Simulated scan of single mutants.
Amino acid sequence: MKLIGIGDAVVDIYQDQHRMYPGGSVVNVAVMARRCGAEHTAWLGLVGDDAAGQHLQACLVEEGVDISRHRVVRGSTGAAYVTLDAQGDRCFTGTNHATRVQSLVALTLNQDDLTYLRQFDVVHSCVSLNTSLERELSKLHGQTLSFDFSSPEYWTSDDLERICPLLGFAFFSGSDLSQAEIRTLVRRVHDLGVEVVGVTRAEAPAYFSYRGTVVEQPVYPATVVDTMGAGDSFIAAFLTHYLTEQAGLAPALAFAARYAAEVCGYHGAFGYGKQLD
């Protein structure tokens, strides 16, 4: 299975540790899919030419993720400021949204990018502060697209109408949604043409549906150090197993739950903490 993530890359700055970790939802998925056995993974997006961008690129190369089509822009790489509570849950306290290169420069897919993207079995993206990225996905006719909508505060009804008809996989974070709200959301997304819809719910069982056939996956016990990247790891492991093994929802979800539990056992989405100057 070959997967590429398109979209934002950031560093997560842990203020109590005074360290930065590479991250960003689609970056995490590309790295974790590779760790889960994907044949080839890649990332296409923007980073700044600062120390944070250099660290992020070096980590992706170390992980064997292809970054040959990414762009380096003069300026600051996106940063998210993080603290951990007593239970290891990561809490975002701010960003450098106003000055980061991803907010100042739009990623546009050119013909060479589109030719390159055809080698991948699935293209994964996510809700972004730079909405031009979502418009770029419409260029990927005929490819299998996966999209992480995240929590309800990050998407609207119009977003679903616009993006879902392009997708084969749609993922949501739904820990604040009731069971009835989840069922309604899943039915609506299926009606918009999405084959596989998944809702992760923190400590509650994940709710996944293939064309209306539902499987719920309980979480695996974990020694939680840091929940950063847990949702991304679930998506990465699910996509890798589902598309590689072709054994259906239940085995892929069990594999994803086990892997997400492992990811909660260390700091950062996939490690590589670096002391800040």
Rank of each mutant, 00 (worst) to 15 (best):
V72W: 07
Y14M: 10
Q57S: 01
D16N: 11
G5C: 10
Y14Q: 11
H70P: 04
V72D: 04
R90A: 02
G64Y: 02
G94C: 10
G88W: 05
C91F: 02
D8M: 10
V65K: 07
V26W: 09
I6V: 12
A52L: 05
D66C: 04
Q54Y: 01
H70S: 15
V10N: 14
T93Q: 08
D50Q: 01
D66L: 06
S25V: 08
L44D: 06
D16E: 13
V26F: 08
D89P: 00
E39I: 11
A80P: 03
D49Q: 03
T77Y: 04
Q87R: 03
N28C: 06
Q57L: 12
A9V: 04
R71C: 15
M20Q: 06
G78W: 08
V72M: 09
R90L: 02
H70E: 14
V72I: 14
S25I: 02
G94K: 04
L3Y: 14
A79W: 00
V31P: 11
G7Q: 06
Q15R: 14
I4R: 09
D50E: 05
R71N: 14
R74I: 13
V47A: 10
N28W: 09
V27W: 11
V61Y: 00
D8L: 11
S68W: 01
Y14D: 12
M20E: 03
Q54N: 07
